[in-house]
Amino acid sequence: MPHQRFTAGLLGGLLAALSAAVWADGSATWGAGGQSMSIAWRDAQTVRMDVQGGDYMLVRDGNAYMVSHRGGQPMVIDLSAMRQAMGGMAGSAGPAAPAAGPSGGDALVEIEATGRTETVAGIEGEIYRVVYRDDGGQGTQEMVLSDDPLAVEMTQAWFAAIAALSGGNGGADADRMDRELAERGLGLLRAGDDFKVSSISAGARAAGDFELPAEPQAMPGMGR
């Protein structure tokens, strides 16, 4: 996993804690790797990520689905069922969210406030120096973090979505970055030059935007 990417997965007791919190509907757009991605959420269990071409991903109650259209008709793929049908291989080779922002359970080695601030997408955050360890070794990255509720919710919604999409079990490491940010009540606005939130706002989307438009199936052309 490249050192330039800030990674995390959000599961277990953390998800339970987030579910108990009071959430406000919101949406955000960020840029990463020269691409852009939009995310909308109601809570950590209800997240939508829109991708290019009108396709989108839904996370509902810890389950992830990909919604596309074929011949003008919606098609819903149950990513958890697809992983099972492929003997677990889809966990590593299945669909992944484009323009990935923060992802995975890297171990937090050190997080230090620099005393400097930066405004990103209209939200003032503090610049931190973060040292972390992943499969490739140890890396350091400058991150802009904020306790603004919208930034916190967006980050937690993304972590929960990545956990559902990857089918990961979250592990038991106490020093995971996702847990550290949740405990500190911080959200991510920028990570180095690779990830930056461009817009973020509160406001509900239409109820149907979080509903499955068709019966899910494990694989294209296979009914459940």
Rank of each mutant, 00 (worst) to 15 (best):
Q35G: 08
Q35L: 07
Q35Y: 06
Q35A: 13
S36I: 13
M37Y: 06
S38H: 14
S38D: 15
A40L: 04
A40S: 07
A40Y: 00
W41Q: 00
R42E: 04
A44S: 14
A44V: 11
A44W: 04
T46W: 07
T46C: 13
T46F: 05
D50A: 13
D50Y: 01
V51Y: 09
V51P: 05
Q52K: 08
Q52V: 13
G53V: 01
G54S: 04
Y56N: 02
M57V: 01
L58R: 03
L58H: 03
L58Q: 01
V59K: 07
V59A: 03
R60G: 05
R60W: 09
R60T: 10
G62S: 10
N63T: 12
N63D: 12
N63A: 13
A64K: 00
A64I: 03
Y65T: 03
Y65C: 04
M66N: 14
M66W: 10
M66D: 08
S68I: 08
R70T: 15
G71C: 13
G72S: 11
Q73L: 10
Q73W: 06
Q73A: 15
M75S: 08
V76F: 06
V76Y: 07
V76T: 04
I77N: 06
L79D: 04
A81I: 08
R83Q: 05
R83T: 09
R83L: 03
R83I: 02
Q84S: 09
A85V: 07
A85G: 09
M86V: 05
M86S: 11
G88Y: 12
G88M: 11
M89V: 12
G91H: 12
A93M: 15
A93T: 07
A93G: 09
A93R: 15
G94D: 13
G94H: 10
P95F: 07
A96M: 12
A96Y: 05
A96Q: 14
A96C: 10
A97N: 04
A100R: 08
A100W: 02
G101V: 00
P102F: 13
P102R: 03
P102V: 02
S103Y: 00
G104S: 14
G104D: 08
G105L: 06
G105W: 03
G105P: 01
A107Y: 06
L108N: 01
V109Y: 00
V109R: 03
E110A: 12
E110R: 15
E110F: 04
I111F: 09
E112K: 12
E112A: 09
E112G: 06
T114R: 08
T114A: 12
T114K: 04
R116S: 14
T117C: 08
E118P: 01
E118G: 03
E118F: 04
T119K: 01
T119C: 00
V120C: 02
V120T: 13
V120P: 00
V120I: 12
G122P: 08
G122S: 08
G122H: 06
I123T: 05
I123N: 09
E124I: 01
G125V: 01
E126T: 15
I127Q: 04
